[in-house]
Design a protein around this nucleic acid. Structure first.
Lengths: 247, 247
DNA sequence: CGGATCCTTGAACCTAATCAAGAAATGTGG
DNA sequence: CCACATTTCTTGATTAGGTTCAAGGATCCG
């Protein structure tokens, strides 16, 4: 398939500014694209900041756009008719959000924190997939990573106690928080902000708000964590936390 | 039903006999391959029948071979150090079994029933992926389908009651059982054999054996199912069963 | 037929849910 | 910047669904 008729010859530096400093440029799916393809995708994409609670995709509704997460956290959730809810995935930069090859997503995708997205129309991505095997390869790798995550969570929901679930969740967030390095902090100590409310943590872990709260209190009592503010957690020794996860 | 002959050699047809009647040929990942590629894959693959309980892949061990399921059922499971176990996926013909692009699978794959596999070495598949974008596309589609399944199960494990879980499981098995048609059965009535033991159903649903057994008894009492033999289930009205799943 | 595995049922127990109230944090408008 | 409203979080008391422990019954297979 030959390139689009709208292609403008860009001889010198065809790399779009937006992509230049982009997390998804190298670690995300766009890493598979050459400068010309990036330029094309860039023409059809726009960067946006969305506030917490904003829905990016809704179950049972056709999705017209896909996104890369440049910063922030997105939750993927499912709901039963009576309102029971389960978060089935959390996504961080530079993850891709969307379900290619399916009109309906069966999932709701929602910004958890204030989130920066690079969004592009559905048909643009699907055309580029057809052109670029590398792009589809990267999407495949991301799907495999999401599958691994989902199956880890299945073990957590199916077989772990409330305390183990909360510890597992905290460890996951800790691992997604870039370390503040160079400060000569004692090895293993970590500080982070929870991106989710207690209610969201409960929906992620298949528990209730109250149980999450109680288990946090107990972990605090055991000296595994300190709760510095509602959302701010300090883990003095990551190995201690790992020992609480059950695996 | 006439048993199709056990291979009549056809010299001038490049399509391997094994592939000719194969479920994976059209519905599975091999659908992307041309006759020549099929021939190559066929040279390096072998068909085997494995008995229940046979391990195809083990967690933490490098996998040297991948397989297509031609018949039977395979379970994917994870285990905690103390022995707690969770089945994180069930696979049926013509599914592909394996985790490309990762030496270690983190999962154990085990035959649940007597299972027919078409098995080929790891490096053969990975070389063919590099050559054939269509093959990788099909693998990607399968990964997306597994992801959808995993997320459905997450909702089940995180938010459904024991009764709803068992009903959900029964419905899933019913849907994977090809209908015996032509017999003029009343619309909506279905009969099937459970491929899993109670213990395996429990490991799939995040329950205990006893709870599974009790819920089956209760569903029987409500007239939603009949248990004709330990493993044989009759569902007089699928809609009645659906109404028990919670979604 | 005998042994092993698989399944069911009952009783006691326990973990997490539910119900309820109040405290802490967050946000808003004066 | 403070007073008030709202949301978020914690804690306590009670309840319930599912687990655990225990025993006996089916089913399967050599």
């Amino acid at each position: 398939m030959t390139k689009s008729a709208t292609s403008v010859p860009l001889e010198n530096d065809p790399l779009p500014d937006l992509c230049r400093a982009c997390k998804a440029r190298h670690r995300g799916i766009c890493g598979a694209l050459d400068a010309q393809q990036l330029a094309e995708l860039n023409r059809r994409s726009h960067k946006q900041v969305v506030e917490p609670g904003k829905t990016l995709m809704d179950a049972e509704e056709p999705t017209s756009a896909y996104s890369n997460i440049l910063a922030g956290v997105v939750k993927l959730s499912k709901m039963l008719p009576d309102g029971r809810q389960q978060i089935v995935g959390l996504q961080f930069a530079p993850d891709f959000v969307g379900r290619p090859f399916s009109q309906e997503s069966a999932l709701k995708a929602e910004a958890v924190t204030s989130t920066v997205l690079c969004t592009f129309p559905r048909n643009v991505l699907e055309r580029m997939i057809a052109d670029s095997a590398g792009l589809e390869h990267n999407l495949y790798l991301q799907a495999l990573a999401e599958l691994d995550d989902a199956r880890d969570l299945l073990l957590t929901l199916g077989r772990k106690t409330a305390r183990e679930r909360v510890a597992t969740f905290l460890l996951m967030i800790a691992r997604h928080t870039p370390k503040a390095e160079g400060t000569g902090e004692p090895q293993g100590s970590t500080d982070f902000e929870l991106p989710l409310t207690r209610a969201e943590i409960a929906d992620f872990l298949g528990l209730t708000i109250e149980t999450v709260s109680r288990q946090l209190t107990k972990l605090k009592g055991s000296g595994v964590i300190r709760v510095e503010a509602n959302r701010r957690i300090c883990v003095p020794d990551l190995e201690l936390l790992e020992a609480e996860t059950g695996d």
